[in-house]
């Protein structure tokens, strides 16, 4: 492999990895707040892309406004899921709640099919212009946006959890619900906020990636699987795990395309997930119980 090819592989891997990391972070937020794996996480991403495409294309909003509207709407959907479904059955088992999210994922997917149809939706990259060539590798301008905003959001989240009052309260609720309540912290509201943040993160991922990949109503499941694999790879429950796992998965996928037919890309991600669960069920960064609930670190 030439150095240009390796560089290309790194660029592609980091771009896709940022998206997987954002999806993984969204998983973690809801997992830490409720112990539930939210199977609708991928639908958040698809919605982010499709809503932006509609706001730009059909409604004619400027891109920046369309992006904000889309992220706010997907965040609101997160709140709605908690309000209408999850918070109603908080005494239900984690499995029940996970099944509910799976059902919601199907509802969102089929509604999207009825609403926008089966064709991919698209909007222009954030900044127009030809790709940059560095040492023979191609760097799309949108990829810079994806990686840049992705990393920015990850840093902001870390700061939020370690330095803000509300962030600390979210950690407290994740670690020990009862103790948090005794401190006057409204656990229900904190869980609601986790859903909103998770939705907004998913929506943002969709907004970032759609100019590169388009948005189709049925991409959600694959995206959720990748985000889940990223979490499993890094170790569930920890923000840094989702980030490390996301980038690792992105790079592995990109590398696989260099040696295997590109149609096998998703199978590679799944194989990585299965291998990770078999060899190191607790993830690269360590045990779930030990690492859980420490999003700030």
């Amino acid at each position: 492999m030439t150095s240009a090819e390796i560089l290309q592989l790194l660029i592609t891997g980091l771009t896709v990895g940022s998206i997987y990391a954002l999806v993984g972070l969204g998983f973690n937020l809801i997992f830490n707040a409720t112990d539930v794996i939210n199977f609708a996480q991928g639908e958040f991403v698809v919605l982010g892309g499709i809503l932006t495409a509609i706001a730009v294309g059909t409604a004619g909003l400027p891109l920046w406004l369309a992006v904000i509207v889309a992220i706010v709407l997907v965040g609101a959907l997160g709140a709605l899921i908690d309000f209408a479904a999850i918070s109603r059955v908080r005494r239900g088992s984690v499995m029940t709640l996970a099944m509910i999210t799976l059902g919601l994922a199907v509802i969102v997917k089929t509604s999207l099919l009825l609403w926008v149809g089966p064709d991919p939706l698209y909007f222009d990259p954030f900044t127009p212009g030809p790709p940059i060539r560095i040492f023979g590798a191609v760097l799309q301008l949108q990829a810079i946006w994806v990686i840049g905003i992705g990393v920015l959001v990850m840093v902001a989240l870390k700061f939020f959890f370690s330095h803000s009052r509300v962030g600390r309260e979210m950690l407290a609720c994740a670690i020990d619900r009862e103790a948090a309540q005794l401190m006057g912290i409204n656990v229900g509201a904190t869980v609601r906020l986790s859903f909103i943040l998770s939705g907004a993160l998913g929506g943002l991922a969709g907004v970032l990636i759609t100019p590169l990949t388009n948005a189709t109503y049925d991409q959600g499941f694959t995206l959720a699987l990748k985000g889940f694999a990223a979490c499993a790879l890094g170790g569930f429950g920890r923000a840094s795990s989702a980030i490390v796992g996301g980038f690792a998965l992105g790079l592995i996928e990109a590398a696989s395309v260099a040696v295997l037919p590109s149609g096998l890309k998703d199978s590679v991600a799944l194989s990585v997930l299965i291998l990770a669960l078999m060899i190191r069920p607790s993830g690269l960064l360590g045990g779930r119980e030990e690492r859980r609930h420490t999003q700030a670190m």
Partner: peptide, 16 residues
């Protein structure tokens, strides 16, 4: 709150 620092634990006590 085991994973948090002593000071963060105390600050949570007056969060609300």
């Amino acid at each position: 709150f085991g994973p948090l620092t002593v000071e963060d634990n105390l600050l949570l006590g007056r969060s609300r």
